[in-house]
């Protein structure tokens, strides 16, 4: 467990999440991709905190902030899915082709 291997793992998670966010058609699966990206980001932040930052407490704080971002993304994402589903009956990204209402 070195900084390089930890960052490689984080890079793999970010790559998989990026693939998911770009490729998935349904909104909820798309959000799962975003969550995986943030998962990798949190791991990288903790890895830097533990192995490269001499335990500066701001490293852990950054992870907490990313966790808050994750919660916000999840809540707003689901609220938008509900709103879009109400108006357009769409649960896949192709269902929204424009901003007209």
């Amino acid at each position: 467990m070195t900084l390089a291997t930890l960052l490689l793992l984080a890079a793999a998670l970010i790559g998989i999440g990026f693939y998911g966010a770009l490729s998935q058609q349904s909104f909820v699966m798309l959000m799962m991709g975003l969550e995986l990206i943030l998962n990798g980001v949190m791991l990288a932040a903790v890895a830097f905190w533990a192995l490269s930052g001499a335990g500066a407490p701001e490293g852990q704080l950054l992870t907490i902030v990313v966790m808050a971002v994750m919660a916000i993304e999840m809540a707003m994402g689901f609220a938008l899915v509900v709103a879009v589903f109400r108006t357009k009956q769409a649960d896949v990204t192709e269902g929204i082709t424009g901003l007209k209402h």
């Binding site: 390089a4 790559g15 990026f18 693939y19």
Partner: peptide, 12 residues
């Protein structure tokens, strides 16, 4: 996705 992994892995 692979490109992101390669770039970030290269940085790592």
């Amino acid at each position: 996705g692979v490109a992101i992994f390669v770039v970030l892995g290269g940085v790592a």
